[in-house]
């Protein structure tokens, strides 16, 4: 809770990060300027790229008291305007899950090694990043919470699997090591409400701690304020649920 006579400050900058396979990549990092130990958040950007929305959201988490980092998952694909790089990655069928998980793991370790870290880190992602956030929660040890926003293709058919995405994340559900918050739209086509139901049933089957919320009047990407998919009420409620969840879990 911020009150008007609190000191408030933030550091936000691009940093170098040793990523998957010890590749040097860059990342956007933001943290509150205070001396108290803070929890952290790793943000996994969406398929449209390492864009302005993700940098704003990294700062949003810092504003709310988290040391936050968003690794540039497309660093290896060159530099230019985010949409141009994203188009290049899209044409290549995305980036391999193993590479994303490697980068995300290193980002988590970066946060945990900060002298002012309280040792707790969540992973957050939207769209393809939502899928990868769930995947990270299942396959990487050390996360304390997952926030999956409209992660499409968590439930994958055999014909959708590829060398880059060889396993349906759903198959890893039994390995999830931390609580998960899921935010979805009932009008979404990827994931469809049916796929969210399958996802939820699998979590239930394996006795996982989960909180799923389905917004009736929303589709895909309802946080994106500059897109027609934006739904102010769902967005406001979604952010409240995210910060409430993080306060309880970190």
């Amino acid at each position: 809770m911020y009150i008007t006579n609190n000191y408030e400050g933030m550091l936000a900058e691009t940093i170098s990060l040793t990523g998957h396979n010890n590749d040097e990549i860059n990342a956007y990092f933001a943290r509150p300027l205070n001396t108290k130990p803070v929890p952290g958040v790793v943000l996994i950007h969406h398929l449209p790229g390492w864009d302005e929305w993700y940098k704003e959201t990294t700062r949003k988490f810092a504003h709310h008291g988290f040391a936050s980092i968003s690794p540039n998952l497309y660093f290896r694909d060159g530099h230019g305007e985010p949409d141009d790089i994203a188009a290049k990655v899209r044409a290549q069928g995305g980036v391999p899950d193993s590479q994303v998980i490697g980068d995300v793991t290193k980002a988590m370790q970066y946060i945990k090694n900060l002298p002012y870290s309280n040792g707790k880190v969540a992973v957050f992602g939207t769209c393809s990043g939502g899928r990868q956030a769930f995947l990270a929660g299942c396959t990487v040890k050390g996360f304390d919470a997952v926030i999956e926003c409209w992660g499409g293709r968590v439930v994958m058919q055999k014909e959708e699997l590829s060398d880059k995405q060889p396993v349906s994340p759903l198959d890893y559900t039994k390995d999830l090591t931390c609580p998960i918050l899921g935010l979805f739209g009932a009008e979404d086509e990827s994931p469809t409400p049916e796929q969210v139901h399958i996802h939820e049933e699998e979590l239930k089957k394996h006795n996982k701690s989960y909180e799923f919320h389905m917004y009736e009047s929303a589709g895909h990407g309802f946080f994106y304020y500059d897109k027609p998919v934006y739904r102010p009420e769902a967005c406001q409620d979604g952010w409240e649920k995210i910060f409430d969840f993080l306060e309880r879990k970190l």
Partner: peptide, 25 residues
């Protein structure tokens, strides 16, 4: 056939004409 960057639609046909192997994107 995916999300657009600029067009106000959920999904669109996106065509990228590119110079293959160009380093300049």
């Amino acid at each position: 056939f995916d999300h657009p960057t600029h067009l106000h639609q959920d999904y669109s046909i996106n065509i990228d004409f590119i110079e293959d192997h160009s380093k300049e994107n």
